[in-house]
Structures are given as structure tokens and as C-alpha cells.
């Protein structure tokens, strides 16, 4: 994707919604499109520039390797004073992600700082896939298995990745 088309796209969206986006969101969007993070793509929705379609590639050497995970990211009215809302759309077997795709990540909650960006959030999510943390679980049954039988948990995670994150 070229930088040019991204600029146009954002401009179009603004025209369509008749709202002015804060400079911060425009700048972040531009940069996400111009210099995408390796393994992550984030594209604003055609009709809502605060809503992003995100695809995270399962990190190498993780049970999620080879999978493409779809997420949705929404920038609330208060952004960046409030954290973006992020959720996995693709089913994933992970101790810090529940059945509804909600993510247990401190920077999305109390550790949010307005100086953080979409980019940093997505990087953190990618890191979470590389290093699951069963001691701070959101999905208790998954975390439990991860602690008592990691091999079995990893097998499950691989199976889910194959079943839900590779079809498409």
C-alpha cells in the first residue's frame, strides 16, 4: 500500500463522516499505513476512521505460528486520554484472551498512558502471543491447563490456530 493512497483514504473518510479527526489520530493512521509494523496490518474502516481492521500474524516459534488473527480496534471519543478498545475476532486458545476475544493486557487498562499509541498496543499484543502469561489469566480454564500441562495446552493452541486462523 502506498503512502499516497492512504492519505487519500483518510481524507475521504473525513469528508464522508463530516467530523474532524484529531491531528493525533490522522498522524498515527498515516504512519501505520506508511510504515506498518512487521507482521501487523491495521487499516481504518471505510465508514469510520476510528475503527480499525487489524490482522496480526502469529509470531514464529509460538503455537500461533502460521495463523492470521483478525482483531478489531476502536478509538473512543477520549482517545488518547483513554485506551483504545481492542478485541480478537478470530478464535484463539490463549490464557490471556477469553472466549469473547477480550484481552488481558495492563496497558489497555490501568497502565494506559496517553503517550502510548496504536502501534505500541499492537506490538504488545504480538508480544503476548509470543509469551503467554498464565499467571495473569483471563481465560481460567486455559490458564489452568497452561500451568499444569503446558505441552497439552500448546497442542490445543496449535490445533485452534490451524482450525480457526488458517482457513482464510
Amino acid at each position: 500500500m502506498s503512502g499516497y493512497s492512504a492519505e487519500v483514504k483518510v481524507a475521504e473518510t473525513i469528508a464522508y463522516k463530516m467530523v474532524s479527526l484529531p491531528r493525533r489520530i490522522i498522524k498515527e493512521t498515516q504512519r501505520l499505513l506508511q510504515e506498518p509494523v512487521p507482521g501487523i496490518s491495521a487499516v481504518p474502516d471505510d465508514s469510520n476512521a476510528r475503527y480499525f481492521h487489524v490482522i496480526v500474524t502469529g509470531p514464529d516459534d509460538s503455537p500461533f505460528e502460521g495463523g492470521l488473527f483478525r482483531l478489531e480496534l476502536f478509538l473512543p471519543e477520549d482517545y488518547p486520554m483513554s485506551a483504545p478498545k481492542v478485541r480478537f475476532v478470530t478464535k484463539i486458545y490463549h490464557p490471556n484472551i477469553d472466549r469473547l476475544g477480550r484481552i488481558c493486557l495492563d496497558i489497555l487498562k490501568d497502565k494506559w498512558s496517553p503517550a502510548l499509541q496504536i502501534r505500541t498496543v499492537l506490538l504488545s499484543i504480538q508480544a503476548l502471543l509470543s509469551a503467554p502469561n498464565p499467571d495473569d489469566p483471563l481465560a481460567n480454564d486455559v490458564a489452568e491447563l497452561w500451568k499444569v500441562d503446558e505441552a497439552e495446552a500448546i497442542r490445543n493452541a496449535k490445533e485452534w490456530t490451524r482450525r480457526y486462523a488458517m482457513d482464510n
Binding site: P22, R24, K27, E28, P80, P114, A115
Partner: peptide, 12 residues
């Protein structure tokens, strides 16, 4: 940016 500084939050 010239005489100014870019704020790390609003980028202005």
C-alpha cells in the same frame, strides 16, 4: 518543529 515542539500526546 521550527521554534515549536511537538507534543507527544496530541502531536501538535
Amino acid at each position: 518543529i521550527g521554534q515549536k515542539l511537538r507534543c507527544p500526546v496530541c502531536f501538535s
